[in-house]
Design a protein around this nucleic acid. Structure first.
Lengths: 198, 198
DNA sequence: TTCCCATTGCGCAAGTTTGCACATTGAGAA
DNA sequence: TTCTCAATGTGCAAACTTGCGCAATGGGAA
C-alpha cells in the first residue's frame, strides 16, 4: 500500500461522498444555525442514508470541522516540501507562514460564515479532537524528516507544541472581532513555543 | 461567590453522587473490561437513574477519567501554593514534581489496574478532552499569579504547553511496560517545552 | 473476458445522549 | 420557624451512535 499514489475510482467516490457530506453540513449550518442541523437533514441534503453519514463521520461536529481537518492536514504535508537540512521548528514555522498567508486571500464572506460556525461552543470539543488526531500524523512526518523515533518525547512534544500553537491562535482569533489577522496570532504563538517557557 | 469556601450540604451531596458514579464505573471497568460497561450498569451500581448519570458525565469515558481530571485539577490548585515571586514555568514544574513524586507512592496494584483501563483506545479521545477542559482553569491560575490577561497568547500557550507535557508523557507512559517511572517522562517533556523548540 | 472478494451502502436493533416538563429539596428570606 | 425559589433528580421522547448482517459493486486475478 503506497502512501499516496493513484486515487482509483473507488477512492475518488469515497472522497466525493465525504466532501459532499461536509459541504451539506456547512450549507445547512450557515442557513439554519449550527445547532439546528440534524444528521438526517445532512444525509438527505447529500443524498445518502443516515447510516452512511455515520460511516464517514462520527458526529455532525466532525462533519462540520472536516474542512479544518483538511486544511491542517495539507499544512502538515507541506512540511515535507521543506528543505531536508532545515531544522524541524524552522521548517514547521516556514510551512505555517506560507500556509496562513495564502489563507488570508480567501473570500472574506466565506471566512465570516465559517467563523460563525466554528465559534459555536458545541464545536470546541470537536476542534480539540481534530487537532489531537493530527498529532500522530505530524509526529510521523517529523520522525521521517529527522530519523528520530516517532514515539519519543522530543518528537511528540514538538508535534504537540506546534499544533497547540495553531489551536490556541485559532481559538483566540475566533474570540476577536472579524477582520483580525490570524497569521499574526499564529506567529506569536509559534514564537512563544520556539523560545521556550522556562 | 468565593472560590472555595464551605461546601454546603447541597454541594456535598452532588460531589458524593459524582464520586460514586466514577467509582462505580471504575469498579465495573476493572471487573468486566472497560468496553463492556453500559451507562445503565454504572447508574444501577451507583443507585441513580440513567438520566442522572448524564447530568454528571457526558459519557462513560468521562466518568472513568474523572479520577485523572481530579488529580490534574489538584495539581493545578497546588500551583497556587508556590511562592508568589517564583517564575511561572518554575512554579509549574515544581508543582508537577512534588505531585508526581507523591503519586509514585500509590498502591502498585491500583496503578496497574488503572493503567489497563486508561490504556483503552476508546479513552484517548476523552483523555484529550479532559486535558483541554483543564486548560481554561490553568490559564486563569497563571493569569492570577502574573496579573496578565488570561486570554492572551502568552498565558494560553504556557498553559497549553504545560498540559501538553503532562498529556504526552502520560500517553508514552501508558505504552511502556509496567513499572516505568512516570515522573521521568513528565520531567523530560517539561524540559523540552521549557527549553523551546526553535 | 470472467470470476472472486474486499469494500461500501444500507436496514435494523441496541445503547447512549439530550431537551422538556414536573416533582423534590435545601438555602436563605421574612 | 415558616415560606419561597432556584437548583436538582427523574421519566419520557426524540435524536444520535454503533455493531451486525446482507446485498451491490468495482478492482484485480485467472
Amino acid at each position: 500500500m503506497t502512501t499516496a499514489a493513484e486515487p482509483g475510482l473507488r477512492e475518488r467516490k469515497k472522497a466525493a461522498t465525504r466532501q459532499s457530506l461536509h459541504a451539506a453540513a456547512m450549507r445547512l449550518a450557515i442557513e439554519h444555525g449550527p445547532d439546528r442541523v440534524t444528521v438526517e437533514a445532512i444525509a438527505d441534503e447529500a443524498g445518502v442514508s443516515r447510516r452512511t453519514f455515520s460511516n464517514y463521520f462520527s458526529s455532525k461536529e466532525e462533519a462540520l470541522l472536516y474542512g479544518d481537518y483538511q486544511r491542517i492536514h495539507l499544512l502538515i504535508e507541506q512540511v515535507r516540501a521543506r528543505p531536508a537540512g532545515e531544522p524541524t521548528w524552522a521548517a514547521l514555522t516556514a510551512a505555517a507562514e506560507q500556509f496562513y498567508l495564502k489563507l488570508g486571500e480567501l473570500d472574506p464572506q466565506w471566512v465570516a460564515q465559517s467563523r460563525l460556525v466554528r465559534a459555536q461552543p458545541s464545536l470546541v470539543g470537536a476542534q480539540v479532537q481534530t487537532f489531537a488526531a493530527l498529532e500522530r500524523e505530524l509526529s510521523a512526518e517529523i520522525a521521517a524528516r529527522t530519523g528520530a523515533d516517532a514515539s519519543g518525547v522530543r518528537v511528540k512534544m514538538t508535534s504537540a507544541a506546534f499544533l497547540a500553537s495553531l489551536r490556541v491562535a485559532l481559538h483566540i482569533w475566533l474570540d476577536k472581532p472579524p477582520g483580525t489577522n490570524l497569521w499574526d496570532l499564529v506567529s506569536e504563538a509559534l514564537a512563544e513555543a520556539g523560545q521556550g517557557f522556562a
